[in-house]
Design a protein around this nucleic acid. Sequence first.
DNA 1: GGCGAAGTGGTACGGGTGTACCGATTTTAC
DNA 2: GTAAAATCGGTACACCCGTACCACTTCGCC
Lengths: 198, 198
Amino acid sequence: MTPHPAPRPEPPAQERGRRRRASLLKAAVALLAEGGFAAVTHRAVAHRARLPLAATTYYFASRDQLLAEAFAELVEAELDTTRDWITRHGLPALADHVAAADRARQLGLWELYVHAGRDPVLQQIARRWTDGCVRIVADVLDVPASDPRARLLYTAVSALWLEHLVEQRPLSQARALLTLALDLTLDHAGPTTAEETS
Amino acid sequence: MTPHPAPRPEPPAQERGRRRRASLLKAAVALLAEGGFAAVTHRAVAHRARLPLAATTYYFASRDQLLAEAFAELVEAELDTTRDWITRHGLPALADHVAAADRARQLGLWELYVHAGRDPVLQQIARRWTDGCVRIVADVLDVPASDPRARLLYTAVSALWLEHLVEQRPLSQARALLTLALDLTLDHAGPTTAEETS
DNA sequence: GGCGAAGTGGTACGGGTGTACCGATTTTAC
DNA sequence: GTAAAATCGGTACACCCGTACCACTTCGCC
């Protein structure tokens, strides 16, 4: 029978349903960006999407699932933006991108990233974020994605970025460190003991 | 006057009070380390310290203050541990330290670090953490703390560390990247040739 | 047309939260 | 000693949470 135990089977299958679901997800992403993690409650999401409370439980099996999908969406959007920006302006100007970015949004992203350390589902998404960023750096450096220099450079840049985000030190400092990181990485154009390639 | 509006004036002034307060703080730190952020509730802290619920509001003006003090304590302890370990085993072996560290505790620390981006009080503590770590790296590199190489190296290492913590990639990868980071940094103008023990 | 499934939304439940309250007890000051 | 101040601790309040429930409407399809 299943009159309405309907936790959530598959994609909504009806047009309006799909729109509603997407709308909830968008609201969740926005809340995540603004207030981080704790701000994404069923009630807040539903209210923001101008939908009744029950819609959230109808389209998402649980808060965790909602959060995971929102995280994935946020990561994907972030990767697109970053790739676009870097290929347009180049690596050394990255500091300006960071400076211009929406701080609350970035904080929310990192918040979820750390939280991914305690949740396997989120961990997978976190990995995709890192891999995506490494890929971007490798592409713009014109080296294979497996080149450890690309990976290290991304790592350094991401930490610079997080540090700037959290501690809000003068931008000039981040800029100088970014330049230094690029110098060190590119100077070392040599063979770079790449042990594994595959 | 003030029969008992007593939000919390100053240090407890009575011996037992000071002990109780410290005990609460210790419990908060432990909870922070284990379950992160959300686990630090008045009730959980009081229960863990074997004190009545009201003790938490008596000794701390608010949950935020309790959290801030716990964060400060955690950071201070972490700095001590790290300095100790590095001066004893050297930078290249850092990967082993990370591998051996208590994962939940580190995650809690980073969780609070990111959260510091939204709270000025915590931000100050976050800065002290970074400064402390930079200082440690600078000391062991035998360069002034203001040397951008020290700062950059710390930044790279911290990101490597966070990435490892969250994404749980094979340790060998982190180790390789750490070595590369050290190479790049020291090559540039390094006064020392660190012995390599692979 | 009809009928079962999908979707909808108002409401309720059980639980956890931060914090205030306030009588009882201990400590300190004189 | 005694009174005032500090401390204690049990309890209560108001709020917010995730989620379940269930009567209702709308849709897809034969």
